[in-house]
């Protein structure tokens, strides 16, 4: 609420975000869209507890996120959030299952429990047979599936995805968006940053940013169409 973010570039202060307020309900699938430099990624970083706002608050589950001390903020990210990055950001020297287990590395779970949880989620993203491979042995789409599995392994209520289809072809992009869309049915709240209008057909709501402010927080869609339906043409959806 009322989020401001200012960057000092040396000679001048750049207002990346200038007073943004909105609410997200549990189980929502939201897209943040806007041109380059509009503040999309900055907003996602603020929502993800990664970057302190100059002003304003981020409240999640009645927790004022930025009032937490630095180590508790890390705990908050681990317990509440799953991140999916544009360029996957998998750790190249860890196998697929090790990458997926990464958020559990600092938990007190046993080795077997960690492995079991990772296997379950890898199964869900369809990569069971490739769990012992290294990331560079997988295709782009497969790597993004691993990244999604990593974001979900500790069952966070919120998943934040920065351009999750940015590095993928259109067929794989649809696959990934469907996967993300299906998570809302399991109670996950999904927030994605995207510049691809094709992705809008999967989301329930969108926030359009321009010059660090919200231009529109709505989505026009046919009321009888399910969010996960891929049969609709993207041009039907206007943010």
């Amino acid at each position: 609420m009322n989020l401001h973010k200012v960057y000092n570039t040396g000679r001048e202060r750049v207002h990346a975000l200038g007073g943004i307020s909105f609410e997200i309900s549990q189980g929502e699938f939201i897209a943040i869209i806007g041109p380059s430099g509009s503040g999309k990624s900055t907003l996602l970083a603020l929502l993800g507890g990664l970057s302190h706002p100059a002003e304003g608050k981020v409240i999640v589950d009645e927790i004022d996120v930025y009032s937490l001390p630095v180590e508790r903020l890390a705990d908050f990210r681990r317990e509440y959030l799953g991140f999916v990055f544009q360029s996957f950001q998998l750790i190249p020297y860890l196998t697929i299952i090790e990458n997926v287990m990464l958020p559990l590395a600092v938990s007190s779970l046993s080795r077997g429990e960690k492995r079991g949880m990772a296997r379950e989620i890898i199964e869900k993203v369809g990569l069971r047979s490739k769990e012992l491979r290294l990331p560079d042995e997988l295709s782009g789409g497969e790597q993004q599936r691993v990244a999604i599995a990593r974001a979900l392994v500790n069952q966070p209520p919120i998943v934040l995805a920065d351009e999750p289809t940015g590095n993928l072809d259109s067929a794989t992009s649809e696959e990934i968006m469907e996967l993300l869309g299906s998570l809302t049915a399991r109670g996950h709240t999904i927030v994605i940053v995207t510049h691809n209008p094709e992705n809008l057909k999967y989301v329930r709501r969108c926030i359009r940013l321009r010059d660090g402010t919200v231009r529109k927080s709505d989505l026009t869609r046919p009321t009888n169409v399910a969010a996960s339906s891929v049969a609709e043409r993207s041009s039907d959806y206007v943010c």
């Binding site: 990664l50 990210r77 681990r78 317990e79 950001q89 750790i91 990464l102 600092v106």
Partner: peptide, 16 residues
């Protein structure tokens, strides 16, 4: 740097 950024983003503490 990026790798450490990922660790921090997914909830590793500074001490980790």
């Amino acid at each position: 740097t990026r790798e450490i950024g990922v660790f921090r983003a997914i909830g590793f503490r500074q001490k980790h």
